[in-house]
Amino acid sequence: MVALVLCASLFGAGLYVVMTRREIIGLLTGVEMMLGAANVQLVMLGAAVGGTGATIEAAGLMVLVVAAAEAAVGLALLLALYRRSGRSRTDELNEVNG
């Protein structure tokens, strides 16, 4: 129960970060927090619904891999955007053609 509340509140904190920060780095941080909290929750509930240790670990590993790949691509996009327009905040990036 304590662990469930902890993971859920970490997820909620990540959601709050995504909603309130303007910089793209902040958004990526919030997304990583949400993915991390969700991963821990997945692993924690895996035993409760009767998965074997290896299946739970494989599932957690897949989530980890997907989240890492998404972070890498997101950061590449951020750098490309910054190089092209010199801006890194979502409220400044509101023009389509430069």
Binding site: L4, S9, G12, L15
Partner: peptide, 9 residues
């Protein structure tokens, strides 16, 4: 909103 999501989970 964040609190609502947490409580729902």
């Amino acid at each position: 909103v964040a609190l609502a999501v947490t409580v729902t989970i």
